[in-house]
């Protein structure tokens, strides 16, 4: 086994063809600079989103689904419940970290500030009943409990 191809090797023609016609595209330097700037901007935004993730904001006034910077109001009707918790990826599935507040009648609500992403979640009543979100898409659940999923788009 020698390192180089022998003089009559047909692969020499292959190698010759492979060394031609692959020049870098015009404007590579500028495009790389623009992409680097975008990457730096994304990194800064990501850091900002991480900071926002620690804020939980309870909101009394319910607005229709409209432009939002990650403000999500979770609400459901739970007749005869003495209390309701929101559990999901964003609470690390702890059942007592986010409580909904009464919003009149049987309605319970809480509003969270969430960064863009996709989150699995459900409601749990103080009676231990698991409930899906009435407005969110249902998802197949490995564990046989009602589960919903929410996508928060980029603003």
């Amino acid at each position: 086994m020698t390192d180089e191809l022998p003089p009559n090797d047909p692969l020499l023609g292959v190698v010759g063809a492979l060394r031609e016609g692959t020049a870098p595209r015009h404007g590579l330097v500028d495009r790389t600079r623009r992409r680097a700037r975008r990457a730096r901007l994304r990194a800064r935004l990501s850091t900002a989103a991480g900071t926002l993730a620690i804020a939980l904001v309870a909101v009394v006034l319910l607005r229709p689904r409209e432009a939002a910077a990650g403000q999500i109001t979770f609400a459901l009707n739970a007749p005869a419940s003495s209390g309701v918790s929101l559990v999901g990826d964003f609470t690390e599935w702890e059942t007592d970290r986010v409580r909904l507040t009464p919003a009149g009648g049987d309605r319970w609500e809480v509003t969270l500030q969430l960064p863009p992403g996709r989150y699995r979640f459900a409601y749990v009543t103080d009676g231990g009943e698991w409930l899906p979100d009435p407005d969110a898409a249902p998802v197949p659940d490995d564990f046989g409990r009602p589960t919903s999923v929410l996508t928060v788009p980029t603003p």
């Binding site: 492979l18 692959t22 020049a23 870098p24 595209r25 590579l28 495009r31 790389t32 992409r35």
Partner: peptide, 20 residues
């Protein structure tokens, strides 16, 4: 690098992105 990436990936578009 462009030559290598183009032949390895079989795509000039992908090679351009790899270079960036």
């Amino acid at each position: 690098l462009m030559r290598y990436a183009t032949h390895f990936l079989q795509s000039a578009d992908d090679a351009d992105e790899v270079l960036q």
